[in-house]
């Protein structure tokens, strides 16, 4: 017996959907307009600087997200299982960093610490001074602390969210605390945190232009420089917008790949 439901379903090509196609066509048209009608001759002079700025932005995102995540794991963990004297400072750190603008933190670090340091001769005479005199260490530290505070909260929730039964099973089979953490608790918390981390890392990318305010040359600061020197406003801004979008897409892909691990149903991986 055949029913109308069994009529051959026509497979629709998803990329032909109006919803996907419209923005693609719009972007192509806009790109063509921009290429033909706007001025791009400055690129010849500025591309080495642009590349340098781009390198700094990429480095900032990768380094501060990685270091920030390494800090975030203990910050989240001690708030769930740690003794009070560790949990409270961790909690306070998250509250303060998340409660103040990143711009302010960068300025306090760079202008505050940066002007405090030279007053101590032992710092000024130290081997580190040539580095501490520059702006980029403060940018890296500021962005790392910011990421650590936000992700510390994410990991706190992720650690808490792992069901107690999962840890019971680990204890019941004789795992030590460290082994339980390494084999069961951390991997499961990571999996829970992953979707949030992807979004947060994109936010981290978009926070990087703030470092331009403490004289670090990132990709945004190059655009600002082009505007000052050539009086072209939109061309450099449009270009770096496209660059930021591409980087955000790349971050999404990296995290999709990371959280895809251990999900597939067939692969039995050696650990």
């Amino acid at each position: 017996m055949s029913s109308p439901l069994e009529a051959p379903a026509r497979a629709r090509r998803r990329w032909l959907d109006a919803g996907t196609l419209t923005p693609v066509i719009a972007a192509l048209l806009f790109g063509a307009y921009a290429a033909l009608q706007m001025r791009w001759d400055w690129l010849g002079n500025y591309y080495p600087l642009l590349l340098r700025g781009l390198g700094m932005t990429v480095l900032l995102v990768i380094v501060t997200s990685s270091l920030g995540m390494l800090l975030a794991i203990p910050i989240g963990l001690v708030q769930v299982v740690g003794p009070k004297w560790l949990a409270l400072p961790a909690r306070a750190f998250c509250t303060v960093i998340r409660g103040t603008p990143l711009l302010l933190q960068l300025w306090l670090l760079y202008y505050g610490l940066g002007s405090l340091f030279p007053q101590f001769p032992w710092i000024r005479d130290s081997a580190l001074w040539p580095i501490l005199r520059q702006a980029w260490p403060y940018a890296f530290v500021g962005l790392t602390l910011s990421y650590a505070a936000y992700e510390g909260e994410v990991f706190r929730g992720a650690f808490k969210g792992v069901p107690k039964g999962q840890l019971d099973a680990a204890r019941a089979y004789g795992m030590s605390g460290l082994l339980t953490f390494r084999r069961i608790w951390l991997p499961q918390a990571f999996k829970r945190a992953m979707p949030t981390l992807a979004g947060e890392t994109i936010l981290q990318l978009k926070a990087t232009p703030l470092v331009a305010t403490i004289t670090v040359i990132d990709v945004y600061s190059v655009a600002a420089q082009v505007r000052q020197q050539t009086y072209l406003t939109y061309e450099p801004l449009l270009l770096i917008s496209a660059i930021y979008i591409l980087m955000a897409v790349a971050i999404t892909k990296v995290f999709a790949r990371l959280s895809g691990q251990g999900q597939d149903n067939t692969a039995f991986r050696k650990s």
Partner: peptide, 26 residues
């Protein structure tokens, strides 16, 4: 001592508690 003993007293839980991030064989 406790870990040594636990490892040989296998427990089966009401809510199974298989580790969710591992395959059955793992």
């Amino acid at each position: 001592q406790m870990r040594r003993i636990r490892a040989r007293l296998a427990m089966v839980f009401q809510s199974f508690n298989l580790w969710s991030h591992m395959t059955l064989l793992e």
